[in-house]
Amino acid sequence: MVDEKKLREKAKEVLAREDVRRLIGWKRGTYGYESAPAVLKDASEADELIFDPTCVQNPASFITLEEKLPVPRGQDPDTRKVAVLVKGCDSRAVVQQLVEKAYDRDSVIVLGVPCTGVVDRRKAAKMFGDTSEPVLIKEEGDKFVFTIDGETREGSKAELLADKCVRCRFPNPLIYDELVADEVAVWGADEFADVDEFAKMSPPEKWKFWEEQFSKCIRCYSCRNVCPMCYCLECVVTKQKPQWTRRSTDVSENTAYHIQRAWHLSGRCIECGECERVCPVDIPITTLNRKMTRDVKEMFSYEPGVDVEAEPLLSCYNPQDPEEYIM
């Protein structure tokens, strides 16, 4: 269990350092079952930090998206470090970003937070309804205890945990400079049963499913914006020269967009599930990405975001790579 007091003290300590510019973590959300991301500048702000089952966001997304402002003449660029609190799943994003040379290892301070699972707001809303006030959630044994609009409610972890947490194999951060709590035991395993189940459908059945899903898409790009692995300076999906996908939100363009993004994430998606969480029209995006994760593992024995020394999947090859379908 994470002691919030200890976490805040550690944060204060780090923020007080001369060579640290920012600290990214979580703070109380403004409403509902989720926290809000916190980007702190000063040690005095550290008391805002929380850690509980509402902390769904992936702070690693912020590292690469920080805008590097133009440096005024005569000044040097601010090369101070950025500190980031990460759960197990979030830490995989840090690992993968380092594999892709997004930044130097010594330009970040990683504070690892061993995690026992977060709440899926959709599941909570189904059970308890929506609310416009922030909700407090505590973990007690195999239950979550909610304080919603002043009332105390309870629900089983099994029914309320995010899907990714049910099968979590990395509750402890894979990379860190310091841990802010003791490591926890691993409880999950992932056999990709959901992917295999989906694969049993015939092509027309699969397309029927996706056609319905992609018709909902409004191309808000929330999925891309929140993804820790989407940090290109100019994203090809919105590029005009050349234009890969039109801006219109018909099924054709939407499908092309989602395939494009799933393709760009193949061998890179670290399954934080943020894309699906933020989708305003509830498209099951991880169903698409997990197919790639599974195939990458099976065909090339590769898992992104676990080994800092690994080479990016599609930058290498094995002369014995499978080629069953090739004439």
Binding site: P204, W207, K208, W210, A262, M292
Partner: peptide
Amino acid sequence: RKLLEHVGV
């Protein structure tokens, strides 16, 4: 090919 198959192509 696998990705497209998953989408139903």
